[in-house]
Write a protein that binds this DNA or RNA. Structure first.
Lengths: 195, 195
DNA sequence: TGCGCTAGAGAACGATCGTTCTCTACGGTA
DNA sequence: TACCGTAGAGAACGATCGTTCTCTAGCGCA
């Protein structure tokens, strides 16, 4: 099927344009022009713009989460090193050219509660990130032999640091927010494990 | 001048609609209808939609920052109590009906780097918040007689917690992210002041 | 070679956007 | 009372949006 190739090119163009300029600011004709996929095929693959937006966020969610997970899993088994790997990954992401914050936060900010499918994808994306951080915290408390009582709170707090770093970096790209968040995370972990 | 009253009604309608549904999703005619201000007067007061958007964000910035500042200043002089007051204020904000995250983050996510005036207002808004947190941290280190070396890093980290709490609460409104951020902030302050 | 089906290119459609223009009605001044 | 300037109501304009339709050219198959 040549549809696969066309679909890839469409999602590539959609991701580049939607992320850089916002969903509503980019028309379907821009996506046709940048992807090289004829409008007819575009509408056969994605019957409405909302479908293309959902597919863009879906694919980005899968790739983003897989990339972060792979980078964490490639780190040494030491839980602290795994935590550090997560923040290193963030620092690299914040430094990429064209970085403009979290695509899911941006989409929600733009579309709000009106677009239910987008809202569901955003919630799922954030739940996956929270689950990944929860796994890191579980490793930390198990490794330290600490009681798992405060694990949920600690994971929630790491989530706040990660989300905060993304939000701050969106307005001023660069690795600094990730490094600061890492230092704060280490301090919070120290406090939680010593209690 | 009746223009003042019309301007207030316009900004009220603009704020309600832009914040709830996004800037691009709301047309000028919706604002005319909800404000009751005729289109002609609207365009005399704000010659283009971009001007109305900037005025909406400007007014919201002033009110938001003043409200948070007033709440912090109304707290007991104890620096820890002032810090707690800031997070209490956030918890109340997150619980307001219609809360949908930070209007400035949402506007930037929607309009991106294309709209320079909006970008400037967003940066200024975040700089004011960061300055307010910096003041709280200065009080803390002075009160504890600690060296002010790590004050900047600590303020940056409180900023991450606040931004993270806003981002998390945007998707699931309620006071919990503020309470978690407060606990994390206290732990970070403890660690910084004991070092 | 002739035929039917599909796909591509892009015009066209209706809706809606931001913005401007027209027309009418009214209020202040002589 | 007659007049003029302004303001309100809303139609109108050009642009652009998402989406569909038209037309033509090329391919597989008898």
């Amino acid at each position: 099927m040549e549809d696969d190739l066309a679909s890839t090119r469409l999602l590539d163009a959609a991701e580049r344009l939607f992320y850089a300029e916002g969903v509503q600011a980019v028309g379907m004709d821009r996506i046709r022009a940048e992807s090289g996929v004829p409008l007819k095929r575009l509408y056969r693959l994605y019957p409405a713009k909302a479908d293309l937006v959902a597919a863009y966020l879906d694919r980005r969610d899968v790739r983003w989460t897989a990339s972060l997970t792979a980078h964490v899993d490639a780190a040494p088994a030491d839980p602290r090193a795994r935590l550090a790997a997560a923040f290193d990954w963030l620092a690299a992401w914040f430094s990429e050219p064209g970085f403009r914050g979290c695509a899911f936060v941006n989409a929600f900010g733009e579309l709000g509660y009106a677009d239910a499918p987008v809202l569901a994808i955003v919630r799922r994306h954030k739940a996956a990130l929270r689950a990944l951080l929860g796994g890191l915290v579980d490793d930390l408390v198990r490794d330290a032999g600490a009681p798992p009582a405060r694990a949920e709170d600690l994971a929630d707090q790491l989530m706040l640091l990660v989300e905060g770093a993304i939000a701050v970096a969106a307005l001023r790209p660069g690795p600094a927010p990730a490094h600061n968040a890492h230092k704060a995370a280490d301090a919070l972990v120290d406090a939680a494990l010593s209690a």
